[in-house]
């Protein structure tokens, strides 16, 4: 049995767990704990080690989706999770500009871990407070050529689109390398 993995990263509450839940064939193995800090109490629980989802491709191949913990104090997990990944996805909450700087920092950290293909997604694009994707691109200082995709992590089709775009990038890299 061959296995490959993709990593879903991003700031606290950017929607990583929901993203994996939308496409995983198993209930996501979550390592959530109640949030103790008042400042971060915009939700009840948060991922502290990793989220873990699975998609069986066929009888010889399984794709694992790993979600990183969003809170910075658990960032020691990031490097471990990024080892041997096929590619990674950085999720950004479109409604919380206060997290944009952290998202940029996470992106730079992951790029430094491994030069693998990646895409960035603007999650919660269905909400009224969501920033326009082109405004976010400037605020996040993303390269105009980088794939920056709108996303609604609770929608299976939206999540599929993001995963496919990352896979197309991986394929394009392979084509370019041959």
């Amino acid at each position: 049995m061959q296995t490959v993995k993709m990593v879903i990263t991003g700031p606290f509450n950017s929607g990583k767990t929901e993203f994996i839940q939308s496409v995983s064939e198993i209930d996501v193995v979550a390592t959530e704990r109640k949030i103790s800090s008042e400042a971060e109490k915009i939700k009840d629980t948060t991922t502290v080690a990793m989220d873990f989802g699975r998609i069986t491709v066929d009888q010889d191949l399984v794709l694992y989706l790993f979600g990183t913990p969003g809170q910075k104090r658990f960032d020691f997990m990031w490097e471990i999770l990024s080892e041997g990944m096929l590619g990674f996805i950085v999720m950004v909450d479109s409604t919380r500009p206060e997290t944009f700087r952290e998202a940029r920092s996470i992106l730079e950290t992951f790029r430094a871990y491994a030069p693998t293909p990646y895409v960035v997604t603007a999650n919660k694009q269905d909400l009224d407070d969501a920033w326009d994707i082109e405004d976010m691109r400037i605020a996040l200082r993303l390269d105009p050529k980088l794939k920056f995709l709108p996303c609604v992590a609770t929608s299976k089709d939206s999540v599929k689109n993001v995963l496919l775009e990352l896979l197309y990038s991986i394929l394009a890299e392979m084509e370019a390398g041959t």
Binding site: Q2, V4, V23, I55, T56, V57, D58, L61, L63, L86, K156, K160, L163, L164, L167, Y168, I170, L171, M174, E175
Partner: peptide, 15 residues
Amino acid sequence: QKSLVNRIIDRIRSI
């Protein structure tokens, strides 16, 4: 490698 990625693409499309 390409075949493997294409298999994953086909699977994701079918979800």
